[in-house]
Design a protein around this nucleic acid. Structure first.
Lengths: 230, 230
DNA sequence: AGCTTATTGGAACATTGTTCCATATAGCAT
DNA sequence: ATGCTATATGGAACAATGTTCCAATAAGCT
């Protein structure tokens, strides 16, 4: 109800040296999320980490979703800010996509949140940054919106999958073995079935996610450039 | 612990006319999911719907996730089965993609589940069906795996977003108004900021999701066909 | 100094998925 | 028919969670 700051000014003067604030709460949340995953972020764990009670936390944030959104914003804004600047359109778009990919690879819970809430401001930022390069890249005017959308959808899709993988393969699990197990289940028993999967099974268990991600971005860009202006 | 059927044969003879079974439970779950969304699928609601107790349900399914997976499998298998058969590669891939899109549009919770568990057997089926057409379509051999992956990622990304939209805009909400609100938040106040988003804001709030989805598929396919064989 | 408001900590609540268990039923052997 | 055993059922009980509530505190203002 009475959320953060209905007062006139921001509370410049801290209550104590370690006073609570949205920023400090988000920081603590990110620590927990990175260390032990999304399921470990409970209000009790967070309160313990901050040496306070859950009620105090609710004074600064609206609810758990608000907290996850703020943590996601934090992580993505930082990643996009310290991105290398590029001059050439294709390289620039690739750099943006990879910055997002790497941020989500490092913080899979953020990817899960973006998939769940695609209207998050970070998505707007990604959409804008990518969209701005489509004209210089030579994507026809009437294809630019669809192209930016396709790229955003693709990036969010990969984000969600990375988050799912991180959830399923917590550190220490043998990635290759897990992928082989999935491939085996997909291929099924019948030796006639699923010829395509059989053919690419080795690639499935050995491929590099990051490299494959870039390949997908390149497909979309190449396809959008090829498109004839109507 | 003792999951379904450790007995020698399947229980051919039903206990009662309305005996419980995994199929009946999944059917009831789908009814609840379609009618009132994913959050409404609780074991208590399900037990009430089936006029039984939650313990009885656990005899047939492992846990909530197993139930969602089975419901997703059901819905997607049905959609892929009754798909129109196509002869031409591009049309065939489009038809597969649209069958998945439409199934998830009708059952957004299934999209959410697929995003959360990309190793679901339905994803294997989609991957295989699409992959099988890439050779006839003319996608270079060494690009086929990446192309099928990109398409699958893209489809799952859109699936997740559709699920999120359905969660945020339950029937009756004005879609256009909601999209305009998102666009306004994304564009921010500063009239100089976000030029691309400003330019496409109208498209953002008026576009057709299904048509835009197809455009994205076409980009990926066109891009994959253009790619030079290394 | 007193008063008001912002903030805190933790108890209490409602709801969830899941487990447990006492009971009932069907099929089978005798 | 009659008991026996594995299968199946219904609902109570449990642990965990997000959220709300509230009494107590500390800061800033007059």
């Amino acid at each position: 109800m009475s959320c953060w700051r209905m007062s006139k000014r921001a509370p410049q003067t801290a209550r104590r040296a370690d006073a609570l604030s949205k920023a400090r709460i988000v920081e603590a949340a990110i620590e927990i999320l990175d260390a032990r995953g999304e399921a470990a972020l409970t209000f009790r764990a967070l309160a313990r980490h901050l040496a306070t009670g859950s009620g105090a936390i609710y004074w600064h944030i609206a609810d758990r979703n608000d907290l996850l959104a703020a943590a996601t914003e934090d992580v993505l804004a930082r990643a996009l800010a310290k991105m290398a600047r590029e001059e050439e359109p294709r390289a620039a778009i690739g750099a943006i996509a990879l910055a997002v990919f790497d941020a989500i690879d490092a913080h899979p819970w953020a990817g899960a949140h973006l998939s769940r809430e695609p209207w998050h401001s970070a998505v707007g930022e990604i959409f804008e940054r990518i969209g701005g390069w489509l004209q210089p890249l030579g994507v026809p005017m009437d294809a630019q919106f669809d192209c930016a959308s396709a790229l955003t959808n693709y990036i969010l899709g990969v984000a969600g999958q990375n988050a799912a993988n991180a959830r399923a393969l917590p550190g220490g699990t043998d990635r290759k073995a897990s992928l082989e197990a999935i491939a085996a289940r997909w291929i099924q028993d019948d030796p006639e079935s699923r010829p395509f999967l059989r053919r690419v099974a080795a690639q499935l268990s050995e491929h590099d996610d990051r490299q494959q991600f870039v390949a997908g971005v390149d497909f979309i860009l190449a396809g959008a450039c090829v498109k004839q202006s109507a």
